[in-house]
């Protein structure tokens, strides 16, 4: 007792025993938890940035300036296929993270490749759709509605493209570094990012496309 420095966090209150760490008691959480929590905060701030784009779109959507409206432009069947691509890629990404936790590199490559393939199909369909709009004369310069549409859909598409680059890098890191703690943490963060993109897409296809075709 004599030489020990008293740590106020551990001093004999009954509450200290039951309080889980992260509530001000019991010392620092493991690195995986703090890293993932920090990334979770980043994702929430990214979602807040998207909320600004959504708000701009909602305000500008009726301002078509005599140009084409959403109900004339949107092809729901394409959007449905896009949605399925992203949803299944979210699922394959989940399976990849299970395989990464079990440290099975072959299965991680397989499910990672499936995730990339589905993400790439999503991007290809989106790119086709947007270039089709421009060729029909519905370019972002045509009206405030189309500016907001291209900004919102384009921002999400850029996020998906960045995610694909990240996924490629992670596959490379698994191949060269193996399943080290750092690689496991990065894979966990990548999974969070990819699932969050799908959540944003749910809001996007509902607000932009489904509300859009109803006019």
């Amino acid at each position: 007792m004599s030489g020990e420095i008293a740590d106020p966090r551990h001093e004999g209150s009954e509450g200290a025993r039951s309080d889980p760490p992260g509530h001000g008691e019991g010392g620092p959480a493991p690195k995986q938890v703090t890293v993932a929590f920090g990334f979770w905060i980043f994702l929430l701030s990214d979602i807040i940035m998207f909320s600004g784009l959504f708000a701009a779109y909602a305000v500008l959507a009726p301002n078509t300036a005599g140009g084409p409206e959403g109900s004339e432009l949107f092809e729901l069947r394409l959007v449905f296929v896009e949605t399925l691509c992203l949803l299944f890629s979210s699922f394959t990404c989940g399976v990849m993270s299970i395989m990464a936790v079990r440290q099975r590199s072959g299965a991680t490559y397989l499910w990672g490749a499936l995730t990339a393939l589905l993400g790439l199909s999503f991007l290809a369909i989106e790119l086709y759709e947007l270039t089709h709009l421009v060729r029909e004369g519905a370019a972002p310069t045509r009206s405030a509605f189309l500016s907001a549409l291209f900004t919102l859909v384009g921002a999400h598409g850029l996020h998906v493209a960045a995610g694909l680059v990240w996924l490629t890098v992670m596959i490379g890191q698994v191949a060269t570094l193996g399943f080290t703690d750092a690689v496991e943490r990065r894979l966990l963060c990548f999974g969070l990012y990819w699932h969050a993109l799908d959540i944003i897409w749910v809001a996007l296809f509902t607000v932009v496309y489904l509300y859009g075709v109803m006019g």
Partner: peptide, 10 residues
């Protein structure tokens, strides 16, 4: 003690 849970973590 129960440890904090990482979001998305298993």
């Amino acid at each position: 003690r129960q440890l904090d849970h990482a979001p998305g973590g298993h």
